[in-house]
Every structure is written in C-alpha cells, then in structure tokens.
C-alpha cells in the first residue's frame, strides 16, 4: 500500500521523552481529520507503548527507542521498537491488571488495544519488543 507520509524518530529511553513522543505522534495524527477524542486516544496508546519501553524494555537504563509513524490511504500506523529485555509471555503481559508493580495498573496493553483498531506485539527475550498499532482513517480527509 502506498505510503502518503512517514516520520521516523529515535529517542533516548528517558521518562521526559515520553511526553515528547506523545506530542509528536499527536501532531502527526492531526494531519488527518481525526476528532480531538481520537487524537487523545492515540496519545494514550503511544504513551503506554513508549512508557513500557522505558520501564520494562530498558528497566530505566540507557537505550534507544525507535518510533515510526506512517500515514497510508486508509490508516495511520505507529511502530514503537526497543532493543531491551523483551517480553517472555506476551499473552500474559496483555492481560488487563497484569503488572509486575503494585503501583501500576497493568492497563497499558488494554488501553492500546481499546484505543487503536489493531495491536500487534512481537518480542524476543533479550532482543527487544516491537509494538505496531493501527488506527483507521477511512472517510477522513487530509488537511
């Protein structure tokens, strides 16, 4: 499928960069006529994916997080990649309320799933994790 627009970013795995990633992905989504509510949903989904990379992927250590945003004819796609610890059991990690920390709600993947139309997770232990999220833009016009 033809790519209409694409931005690739690389950020250091730092908590202060989560907000920057969020704002950038929202700005990219604003190229399409998403509603404010839909843009908020994208911000939450991306925030969860990037936070996961910082907290779980790199466990607050140094690392690089790649963010690839692509606009297609009928959908917008966000890919978040880390080269960190990886997820041993993706099915378990995707369960709502699964969290390794009592002060966390374990809702990260649940939010990504409910706010985006597609969620694909690929992970290998000690290699890293790739999260691919898609939101459909059907019937939307471009600015």
């Amino acid at each position: 499928m033809a790519i209409k627009n694409q931005i690739k970013m690389s950020i250091q795995s730092l908590s202060e960069n989560v907000g920057i990633a969020r704002v950038s992905t929202a700005a990219f989504a604003a190229l399409v006529d998403f509603t404010l509510n839909e843009i908020e949903e994208i911000k939450v989904a991306v925030s969860e994916a990037v936070s996961n990379a910082v907290i779980h992927g790199y466990e607050y250590q140094d690392g690089e997080i790649e963010i690839k945003m692509t606009l297609y004819e009928d959908k917008i796609e966000y890919i978040i990649i880390d080269h960190g610890r990886g997820i041993a059991d993706i099915a378990l990690a995707r369960q709502p309320s699964y969290s390794s920390d009592p002060e966390r709600m374990g809702l990260g993947f649940a939010f990504m799933e409910s706010f985006m139309d597609e969620l694909h997770i690929e992970s290998e232990v000690n290699k890293g994790t790739q999260v691919r999220m898609v939101k459909k833009t059907l019937l939307k016009t471009e600015h």
């Binding site: 908020e40 911000k43 969860e48 002060e103 966390r104 709600m105 374990g106 990260g108």
Partner: peptide
C-alpha cells in the same frame, strides 16, 4: 492527560 502510570499512582 492521564495514562496508566498516572492511574497507578
């Protein structure tokens, strides 16, 4: 804005 980290706290 709030996400699951904010909810957790």
């Amino acid at each position: 804005f709030i996400d699951s980290s904010g909810l957790g706290v």
